[in-house]
């Protein structure tokens, strides 16, 4: 009898203990975390996503692995529809590039509500944009400064290689058209690498690329950058002037690399993932890789991030409106 009693006591206390630990335990993932990439393999977003995956895996920052999944369709439309459907799912994250700011406006038929369908977690990095020309370009030979370039571009129609209609670089071209009064023929390619190769191969005259995509040709001297669209010079490109220096403070544009979760998750879950990303952000390997690559480390979370996204979203809506 006593034995059974004792057993019962042990059982009950064990259950209580289990229950209490379950409720007191902070959130941790119960299955592998899906990291949705709204772009194809090999792009800038893909690179960061796989870097984050690698850093988490190498250092055991999370109890379950992160699995990157590319959903490149519809310029981010497919990924956003997928994450929207995953409302309340605590094992889904999405890395963003700027197409998440433009696609809801460009493709209203998808029915994506940027501000209510997602939970922004954190922005880790902003990538910069530069104006690139080939050193021995047939139409751009001898050009060394951004002003010379504008003069040339106004004179005749140059060809610009880009990453796809209505993508960031074409919007940027639209911005420059308004500011400097030149236009260019826009040829879309299937990725940043192909854009860079089109430039050096002589098919296009200039591009508005991120640093990493042109890095190889830049180092070998096959291509050169005329201006970086930031307030300050970047240590990775010491001799490239910033747009502020040249007197064009309106020419400022970034690619954000932020992370989002689906809407409808608890604050606890949001805090867990924000914390995880924060750990990744301060990982020395993550820091040095991005700084060497000319990216700006720019952690932002919470209300700051929300305000930032609201401002950027409106800014992009205006650019798209002007573009049409």
């Amino acid at each position: 009898m006593t034995l059974i009693k004792q057993l019962a006591v042990v059982l009950v206390s064990f259950t209580l203990f289990a229950v209490s630990t379950v409720s007191a335990k902070p959130f941790s993932p119960k299955k592998p975390i899906e990291l949705i990439i709204p772009a194809g393999q090999g792009g800038g977003a893909d690179e960061i996503a796989r870097l984050v995956q690698g850093v988490i895996e190498k250092n055991d920052y999370a109890s379950k692995p992160v699995i990157p999944i590319n959903k490149k369709g519809g310029s981010g439309g497919e990924a956003m529809t997928y994450v929207k459907k995953k409302n309340g799912d605590v094992h889904t994250l999405m890395i963003t590039l700027n197409n998440v700011l433009t696609t809801p406006t460009n493709q209203p038929e998808l029915g994506i509500d940027f501000f209510n369908d997602f939970t922004p977690l954190a922005r880790l990095i902003t990538d910069t944009f530069l104006v690139w020309i080939a050193t021995e370009g047939k139409n751009t030979a001898g050009i060394n400064t951004f002003d010379e370039f504008i003069a040339k571009a106004k004179g005749g129609s140059l060809v610009m290689g880009g990453t796809g209609k209505m993508s960031e670089d074409e919007l940027l071209l639209g911005m420059m058209r308004g500011q400097f009064g030149f236009d260019a023929k826009y040829v879309p390619y299937s990725g940043g690498g192909a854009v860079a190769k089109g430039l050096v191969g002589g098919e296009s005259d200039f591009t508005l690329n991120n640093p990493s995509e042109q890095m190889g040709f830049y180092q070998s001297g096959d291509s050169k950058a005329l201006v970086m669209m930031t307030p300050e010079r970047n240590p990775a490109f010491p001799e490239v002037p910033s747009s502020y220096e040249l007197g064009y403070p309106d020419l400022e544009y970034y690619m954000m690399r932020a992370f989002m979760a689906p809407a409808g998750i608890d604050a606890e879950v949001r805090d867990y993932y924000t914390g995880l990303l924060h750990t990744v952000y301060w990982d020395s390997e993550f820091q040095s890789f991005n700084i060497d690559d000319g990216k700006l480390m720019s952690w932002l979370e919470g209300y700051g991030l929300k305000d930032f996204l609201a401002v950027e979203y409106d800014k992009h809506s205006v650019i798209i409106e002007n573009f049409k």
């Binding site: 194809g40 393999q41 090999g42 893909d46 690179e47 796989r50 870097l51 690698g54 990725g191 690498g193 990493s212 890095m215 190889g216 040709f217 180092q219 070998s220 096959d222 890789f289 060497d292 690559d293």
Partner: peptide
């Protein structure tokens, strides 16, 4: 594309 991404992550710059 993934190999290339890997090379970049290992700190190598593909190019000429």
């Amino acid at each position: 594309a993934i190999l290339l991404g890997g090379m970049i992550l290992w700190g190598l710059t593909p190019g000429p």
